[in-house]
Design a protein around this nucleic acid. Structure first.
Lengths: 337, 337
DNA sequence: AATTAAAATGTAAACGATTACATAACAGAA
DNA sequence: TTCTGTTATGTAATCGTTTACATTTTAATT
């Protein structure tokens, strides 16, 4: 294996100069630089990255903790992260936890052992104390979810407003009995969307009905199941706002399976705008999370942090918008803000 | 930062012994071992993995090259790889190429620079010569796709048989005009499925019609577009076999958009059995690729290779089966093999 | 030409674990 | 007890870059 000393000898310089040509080219006189570059090319020299990492205690690699890579909302975020990372010569190490907290804790060791320079969390099951410790020592960015009691850089959307907009859309269409299927109550993001829903209902003067509010877990199956229960009510809802597109699909499927029509007999609004929302039949009206942008932004914040140790934690809120498709029918003209 | 020498001093041994306790515990006397372990615990010592990697020229990390992480068939494979890797204390570095060949070539440098110990390819756009060079020097496994002219460990399914089974299913249902929308012709896997289709048509004595064979690129959009063209034929097909579920969904959407019914007026078979095939309406009859298992198997082969330099390349073929849902109607009773 | 400041290059000491080889400790046999 | 073979431990070189500091070269100014 060709090493730096070989290049140095061939170019008649010291390894220091070769190293500088590689890492800091302007600090080397042009003629020397060219000589070195020619030697590098001639010998087909590949720097030993492991030695470099070791010496610099940096790996140019970041870790992304993903609850479930199969969920396209997360893969979109990863895509955004990947793109920003590649541009800055960073690599992305993937940590798929399958919503298993132990695995999540396990991955944190990569940070502690300096195998990665920073971390992006697409889920937040870690307890606040551990997270606080981590955040103090290493660059960490939290995406989508946010946490109380932890001072951490966060990229998210305004879930309260989004929840409100979704419910208001259904109200404007004239619906009076609007159900909500939330994500797991454990997550703040679910609570916020619920709060938005409650705001919309209350402000519009509609009657609040507890039985119309149900807890899911973001999955298709939970949407299906909760909708079945809603259909059993003597006075069933005419509209549903589900906290994820997958659940919205479950809702629609359950409704169709009962022989009812969507949007004819039930209007549905989802959340996320995953790719399949537009492919699904009917196309799902949904609150679009700018997933790729969220990934991109989070990586950029992480890079800022990486390059500037005095970086102050930021909370970034990205804009999301309602995408209108067929699942609510067409009573309303044009786009709803 | 606590280092090995600190542990050694506290335990009154040499660093060599501490290192042995960590890497090769049986070679150390029990009493010493315990003493060392106690010191490690007391100091909360974390070995410097970068130093270790450097010294050993191993990273316990493998690279997965993914054409498109957003496609759930790939994320399932990644999931399988991840699981097998985690069990063996390996990490997975993700290389998302977005079907960009340059990025693919770029990622190969990770291997050349020893930043990863091995590689799993979920796509094969790399030219044979480069790949051959790579395979000679490093452990590489190819999944799903296979290549002629390269001696490389491969995990795949029998695409010819699968294509035949898909077409035969439609034939058994009584269809006479069966179209096929293939994946990109560049890939052998597309050609194989087409061959299977041709075999089925020919063997059954049906008339072959060139106009019913069209090239897509696995995407929803291409399925939609090709189906639009098929619908314009004066004598349109009554059934379509699409080489991916996404294309099948495109086919169904295009058909519905023309006011036709699926499965009523068109029967559709897809390929892959991605998660949304069962959620889609109608549920898609499809050839199931055992994606997670494929990922798992490929990682295990890679590990074998990693542990045994004399490893002989293997070609593993996994079983896949037809999953019958609603998209072809119910003219046939029971399960079709 | 002498002086000085700035720019370019070289020297050599890190970084922290691993491991070949040398040595010491121990157990069992005579 | 002594010898021998085995097992356990220690010593110190090594992996290949990077970089603080020292030295030399170059350019600018008088």
């Amino acid at each position: 294996m060709v090493k730096m000393i070989d290049v140095a000898k061939l170019a008649n310089v010291s390894t220091a100069t070769v190293s500088r040509v590689l890492r800091n080219p302007e600090s080397v006189k042009e003629t020397t630089r060219e000589k070195v570059l020619r030697s590098i090319a001639e010998l087909n020299y590949q720097p030993n990255v492991l030695a470099r990492h070791f010496r610099r205690s940096k790996t140019n690699t970041i870790l992304v903790i993903v609850p479930n890579i199969e969920n396209t909302i997360f893969s979109q975020m990863v895509q955004g992260i990947e793109a920003a990372a590649a541009q800055n010569n960073f690599r992305v190490l993937l940590g798929n936890t399958n919503r298993n907290v132990d695995k999540e804790y396990d991955f944190l060791n990569l940070l502690r052992q300096r195998q990665v320079d920073g971390m992006i969390l697409l889920s937040g099951k870690i307890d606040n104390q551990t997270l606080n410790e981590l955040v103090e020592q290493y660059p960490v960015v939290l995406v989508s979810e946010y946490l109380e009691g932890v001072d951490i850089t966060t990229v998210c959307i305004d879930n309260v407003t989004c929840g409100r907009i979704a419910a208001e859309h259904l109200i404007k269409l004239g619906h009076k009995r609007i159900a909500h299927i939330s994500g797991s109550k454990g997550t703040l993001l679910s609570r916020d969307r619920l709060i938005g829903y409650l705001q919309a209902i209350t402000h519009s003067g509609l009657k609040l009905d507890d039985r119309l509010i149900r807890e899911g877990d973001f999955s298709f199956e939970s949407g299906y199941k909760q909708m079945q229960e809603l259909l059993r009510l003597e006075n069933r809802p005419t509209a549903v706002f589900a906290s994820s597109d997958e659940m919205a699909m479950g809702v629609i499927k359950a409704t169709k399976d009962q022989g009812l029509k969507v949007p004819g007999e039930l209007a549905v609004v989802g959340f996320d705008n995953i790719r399949f929302s537009s492919i699904f039949d009917p196309g799902i009206t949904t609150v679009a999370q700018p997933a790729i942008e969220m990934g991109n932004t989070s990586m950029e914040l992480l890079l800022q942090h990486l390059n500037d140790p005095s970086f102050q934690h930021k909370k970034i809120m990205l804009k999301s918008e309602l995408v209108i498709r067929e699942s609510c029918g067409w009573n309303v003209k044009g786009k709803v803000e």
